[in-house]
Design a protein around this nucleic acid. Sequence first.
DNA 1: GTCTATACCGAGATAGAC
DNA 2: GTCTATCTCGGTATAGAC
Lengths: 176, 176
Amino acid sequence: MLDEGYAAVTSRRVADRAGVNSGLVYYYFGTMDELFLAVFRRRAEWMLERQAEALASDQPLWALWTVTHDQANTALNLEFLALGNHRKAIMTEVANYSRRFRRQQLDALSGVLEGYGLDPQEWPPASVILLLSSVSRFLLMEDSYGLDLGHAETIEIVERLLCQLEGERAPARDRD
Amino acid sequence: MLDEGYAAVTSRRVADRAGVNSGLVYYYFGTMDELFLAVFRRRAEWMLERQAEALASDQPLWALWTVTHDQANTALNLEFLALGNHRKAIMTEVANYSRRFRRQQLDALSGVLEGYGLDPQEWPPASVILLLSSVSRFLLMEDSYGLDLGHAETIEIVERLLCQLEGERAPARDRD
DNA sequence: GTCTATACCGAGATAGAC
DNA sequence: GTCTATCTCGGTATAGAC
């Protein structure tokens, strides 16, 4: 899916990769759509856990920034989004999980941001999260086709703001 | 392409829609990839012109914000991006045009932003453009699957900043 | 549960009549 | 230039042996 796009994911190739016959795909999943949904749900659940861990750190903003800034996730999400564009069931699932991600971020950060002295009137937590997420995703998207004009400076700006709010980023323990 | 995704665009269906035989697609374009490239290039050229007009206005930031905030473009771009993900020629063309778009924005806005009193050290023009573009795109992407949590507040923030830099948005003449 | 075999469809692409 | 006809391939999905 990452290398060749969702259209390249066929029952035959999946079965080949798994070392079984293509009939088994239908035995276990029913249709290809169900297979895509199963993959999506497993990934999404795993990412929700990862995000929950990140948000539970003592520097939740830095952690969110780090966890969002993950190339593989962005590329795959894009693929699922494009897939959802013309498969209703998948679109619905993408929407549901997106809401859960956003909710989780909001629940974890609303109090924290106020604690940092941010006026929720002027800088609503939902907006701070949205701004952080969108910059991160957009840069990664551009990276994917080799466009990085202005990226370094922009990352610097974001991280400067994070520093002001949350202090220096603590040294990573197991971040790549 | 918008309704059903790029995979649904086949030589037969294109020919049907045009009221001709599918062989003609190959007569005129050679391969389906060439057809996609032709569509992409024509659209991109048109959008470059639209962007140039926007940037030439007396409120170029507002104009850029408006022109970027266009649903149809975002959805189609996503589709081409996904298509490019596994067709090298298309990926290359997406990259080239993205660079031209960014260049055009930079050339038009660098001076303007400095004129607004923005310190280019603290707020490099490339970053301001990147921030504006990424928020706009991200919100539209979320809109496409019905997620709008925090959107209104975020748009308000962006437009508040635009106001500070460029004054009230002038009443539209022929915006949508 | 896993396989082989196969039905069926529609894709990309080409040949050749007109 | 436009058509019909057709080749070849690979997709989804199912039936039925083991």
